[in-house]
Write a protein that binds this DNA or RNA. Structure first.
Length: 942
RNA sequence: GUCCCCGUAGACCAAUCGGCAGAGUCGAUGGACUCAAAAUCCAUUCAGUGUGGGUUCGAAUCCCACCGGGGACACCA
């Protein structure tokens, strides 16, 4: 590839041409100007960042935000800023169009990779994180991104995580009222218990409870709580992980280490309480459908019933089913192998009439069950999934009674029933469930259809149809039968209507150093005590050894050890929490990386407020609902689709808690979500499979060569290991930031992934050069613009461009907007004189994409100050009317002629003219039909 | 296996409500400039829309099936 340095050493490059060297002069100058003048400061309604004298104070607001980056040690490659440049172009346009634009940027700086990187390099994570953040800032500044620099922060700043901890306390000090479907302060729950208006669980008497018992009751209601429960333990990382961080293969999303289920005491957040609202409120959001779908699937709400089946003695098995209408078809039951009732159910011997196929060849039920349990436990998640096609299981020797018809049905255990979902037990209805059907075939169990299947239908029928073989339900449709059965179950005390979720509570603690400490201590009872707000932030202490204790990745029998627990003088602390000075023990877990990104959109609104996480007036202005039914939230949130579930679900959850407690007026954090595409790149491997530097590969005759060796091409993410990284810094060096920005925006729609192609960047540079050349004499540097009025035809082109560009910008179609600007430039280029009338709007329209160039040219055109607040051009409607319209005339679908008429010509006249134009093609045939599409074409059918 | 998205010149991409397949960029080719090259400028080139059906006066666009690419989910009762 030819580099700019070669071209610039050429003696005959005109001295005032727009080149990379010229860009390198212009760009830092304007970046400094913007920084010195606070050009992109957005005024708040109130507080320290209010500025009534600002040109956009009180204007309609627009809050646009990017998913903030995690500042990795590798720095940015050209794929990262795609979305940032998109939002920057959009907000620069909107600012010029009159909006008060909030476009901030921050850094998600806590987390595992920073810690791992720090461990590798032997430096403190804060040191490496801060260095990385500085590097990112430099890279972003160089791209001319118009951020309000007063509003930036890192999640690792104590001033920031003070409020992360504050929100944790809000969550901790709240409970979910199922009647009101919202969070309420925990004090209100205590008052209800004291007044006796709410019953204490287990029917105990509040006044008879000891203080410790009362605390335990209360703690059981909190939205943040400690529980001893099976969690995902990852020895390789030395920490536990949330369900969302574990892949379907049972490995960690980060690092791909094995994950094991272990029962451990951990902090949880009661996100399940919000399952309904998290599903329902998706309808109010302007989000890509696939993302909504992923969230719906992840939450996995299903409506149905809990049904009790009696077993020997007084025992009962409770199942969850979405099809209570099919109860008459329940011919057997299945428990998950791990189900706690299994051992109590198993009788001493096989009952009379047990089939051989049911026993697995074992002499007693206990043996059979033990063997099956062992086999199931030995299977990895992967094997279990792979074996899904063949149903396995074993008879427990026990029977249960179907509550609707008192039929005696056998109880099996099988690994196709999952312990973690519903009640871990099912009623099996082979007639209406494919899995049950498959199991019934293997074990020769009876099949009773309870929904009439179509004539000749084979297998389980899951569709709609009238109920059959179901006594009083017969004839009802599925929905009606469900409702009738639930009513019957509730009336007879055999079950209740119920909703279950796939969503689990959010495992919120991590055994890491580099995260937010919990604002929690433990007293002598071992129960948690919240620190008062006045003690925030709880700062992360300095430790000698911040590296976590990790283990053999495959050793499941290990215990997590938190790095903070080794800091004994920090863990033991004397505090006065109202009962006089006492010794407490600090919580030594830290929060997961998601905590900081759960609410950062709010802190941008009021980053310096030390009285509240955000002033209510500022929140209402920037994020409040814009009308009835509107959820409020960020007006445009741009980021990759990989956060469809994790970050976006957690952030919605926290936002709703804050909404319930009255801290924010919006009930959703992100009104509109846009998923940008990815920039990927080709990578090349030699015959040994080693990657060779992509920039050194040349193409000849459709083959690829590295030196003399042929190499094979593949396509994927940019990364060090693939040796195909291109950085924005390289592009700025070789072409300038404006060229890079224009190229990224011009290469395709923002939401489409595409391959990077460095050699195509020159096209954008040529475009900027042409614009520059229109205005600046390349030999003398003189401005060559005149006040000559535009030719009427060119004027119409100009106004059509303005109208088109505005439309494209509003729809984030930057690629087509740029195409229109290139077209306009190409129209102006051959003209003898450059008219100010055309070139000023052109510069203004260029400025969202090439802001430095535009500022420079705007100055040269004789204007003071910045172009950032100049009015974006508005098209004159009179100029948008075409002088004449050419109608193609089709005869039987083929174009046979054209007519040119005035734009306001009546349809009848167009018809006459069109028929005359194709008279020859018609050859006297009588048209059967003539269709005139106004402004488009005429179609004649013969 | 199920669901979702996408297939348009050699490459990246346009095409409003179903209305003349082409706005823009790269590449390639030719020309201008140059001693020559680079850079720059000018011009030209190239597909009938993945395949096969259907609806329609008219389909890249709507419907069905298949092929290819990408993504999500994958015993969730």
């Amino acid at each position: 590839m030819v580099t700019m340095s070669e071209s610039e050493t050429g003696a005959d490059v005109p001295p005032y041409r727009y080149t990379a060297a010229m860009a390198a002069q212009i760009e830092p100058r304007w970046q400094a100007y913007w920084a010195e003048n606070g050009t992109f400061f957005a005024p708040n309604p109130t507080g320290e960042l209010a500025d009534p004298g600002h040109p956009r104070a009180g204007a309609p607001k627009l809050h646009v935000q990017d998913m903030f980056p995690y500042p990795s040690g590798a720095g940015l490659h050209v794929g990262h800023p795609l979305g940032y440049i998109g939002t920057d172009s959009y907000t620069r346009y909107k600012r010029m169009a009159g909006f008060n634009v909030l476009h901030p940027m921050g850094f998600d700086a806590f987390g595992l990779p920073a810690e791992q990187y720090a461990v590798q390099t032997g430096t403190h994570p804060r040191t490496t994180t801060e260095a990385n953040v500085e590097r990112y800032r430099g890279q972003l500044r160089r791209l001319g991104l118009a951020y309000d620099e007063r509003r930036t922060f890192s999640t690792t700043d104590p001033d920031y995580y003070r409020w992360t901890q504050w929100i944790f306390l809000q969550v901790y000090n709240s409970w979910f009222d199922p009647e009101l479907r919202k969070a309420r302060p925990i004090d209100e729950l205590v008052k209800e218990f004291e007044a006796g208006t709410r019953a204490v669980p287990d029917g105990r008497d509040w006044s008879g409870l000891t203080p410790v018992e009362r605390r335990k009751v209360i703690d059981g209601f909190r939205l943040a709580y400690v529980s001893e429960a099976p969690v995902n333990w990852c020895p390789g990382l030395g920490t536990v992980l949330a369900n969302e961080e574990v892949t379907p293969e049972g490995r960690s999303e980060r690092g791909n280490y094995p994950v094991f289920q272990r029962s451990l005491k951990q902090w949880m957040m009661r996100i399940t309480a919000y399952g309904d609202r998290l599903v329902d409120d998706l309808d109010a959001l302007d989000w890509p459908e696939p993302v909504k779908l992923m969230q719906r699937n992840w939450i996995g709400r299903s409506r149905g019933a809990h049904v009790d089946f009696r077993t020997a003695g007084d025992a009962k098995i409770t199942v969850f089913t979405t099809r209570p209408d099919t109860l008459f078809g329940a011919t057997y039951m299945v428990l998950a192998p791990e189900h706690e009732l299994v051992s109590t159910l198993v009788p001493a011997a096989w009952p009379e009439g047990t089939r051989d196929a049911w026993t697995g060849g074992h002499a007693t039920p206990a043996e059979a069950v033990a063997a099956y349990r062992a086999a199931a436990a030995a299977k990895t998640e992967e094997e279990r999934t792979a074996d899904a096609k063949v149903k396995t299981g074993v008879f427990t020797g026990a029977y249960a009674t179907n509550p609707v018809n008192d039929e005696r049905i056998p109880v099996f255990i099988a690994d196709y029933v999952l312990a973690g979902y519903g009640t871990g037990a099912i009623m099996a209805v082979p007639g209406q469930d494919e899995r049950d059907w498959a199991f019934a075939e293997v074990f020769e169990l009876p099949i009773i259809r309870t929904v009439e299947a179509p004539e000749g239908f084979e297998g389980a029928f899951t569709g709609e149809g009238p109920a059959i073989n179901s006594d009083w339900l017969n004839g009802m449709g599925v929905a009606e039968a469900k409702a009738a059965m639930i009513a019957w179950l509730e009336e007879h005390g055999k079950g209740t209507g119920a909703t279950t979720y796939r969503l689990r509570d959010w495992l919120f603690s991590r055994q890491r150093y580099w995260g937010e400490p919990f604002p929690i201590v433990y007293d002598e009872t071992g129960l948690p005590v919240a620190l008062p707000e006045s003690m925030l932030p709880v700062e992360l202490p300095e430790v000698d050894d911040f590296s976590p204790r990790t283990f053999d990745p495959d050793d499941a029998d290990t215990e997590p050890e938190t790095p903070l627990s080794r800091k004994k003088d920090w863990v033991q602390v004397e505090l006065d929490l109202g009962d006089g000075p006492k010794t407490y023990t600090r919580e030594t877990n830290t929060m997961p990386q998601w905590a900081g990104s759960c609410w950062y959109e709010l802190r941008y609104l009021d980053p310096r407020n030390d009285q509240a996480l955000v002033d209510k007036a500022n929140e209402a202005y920037w994020m409040g609902p814009q009308g009835p039914g509107d959820p409020g939230g960020v007006d445009l949130y741009v980021g990759g689709v990989e956060h469809a579930v994790l970050h976006l679900l957690y952030a919605r959850f926290w936002h709703k808690v804050l909404f319930d407690l009255g801290h924010v007026s919006s009930f959703e954090p992100f009104r509109r979500l846009f998923n940008q595409g990815y920039i990927q790149a080709y990578a090349f491997q030699d015959e040994r499979g080693f990657y060779v530097p992509a920039e050194e590969v040349v193409e000849r005759d459709g083959k690829y060569f590295h030196g003399e060796k042929e190499v094979t091409r593949s396509y994927g993410k940019m990364g060090k290991s693939l040796k195909n990284v291109v950085t924005p810094d390289q592009m700025c060096d070789e072409y300038g930031a404006d060229t890079f920005r224009v190229y990224e925006m011009a290469m395709g729609p923002l939401d489409v992934s595409r391959p990077w192609e460095t050699r195509a960047v020159v096209g954008s540079q040529r475009f900027l050069q042409r614009v520059w050349r229109l205005i600046v004499d390349e030999d003398t540097g003189a401005v060559r613009v005149t006040d000559t009025p535009l030719d009427p035809k060119v004027r119409r082109t100009l106004h059509q461009t303005i109208a088109g560009v505005r439309e494209d910008m509003d729809e984030l179609r930057f690629n087509t907007a740029i195409a229109k600007l290139i077209q306009l430039t190409n129209t102006l280029t051959p003209l003898e004189t450059t008219s100010r009338e055309a070139v000023e709007p052109l510069v203004l329209m260029m400025s969202p994409f090439a802001p430095h160039l535009a500022e420079e040219l705007w100055r040269k055109l004789g204007h003071d100050g910045t172009v950032a607040y100049a009015d974006f051009p508005v098209a004159d409607p009179a100029q948008l009317v075409a002088e004449s319209v050419t109608y193609p005339v089709q005869v039987n679908g083929k174009v046979r002629g054209r007519v040119e008429v005035a734009p306001d010509t009546a349809e009848d006249s167009v018809r006459q003219a069109a028929l005359a134009a194709v008279a020859e093609a018609l050859a006297g045939r009588e048209p059967r039909k003539v269709i005139v599409v106004p402004g488009r074409l005429v179609s004649v059918v013969v």
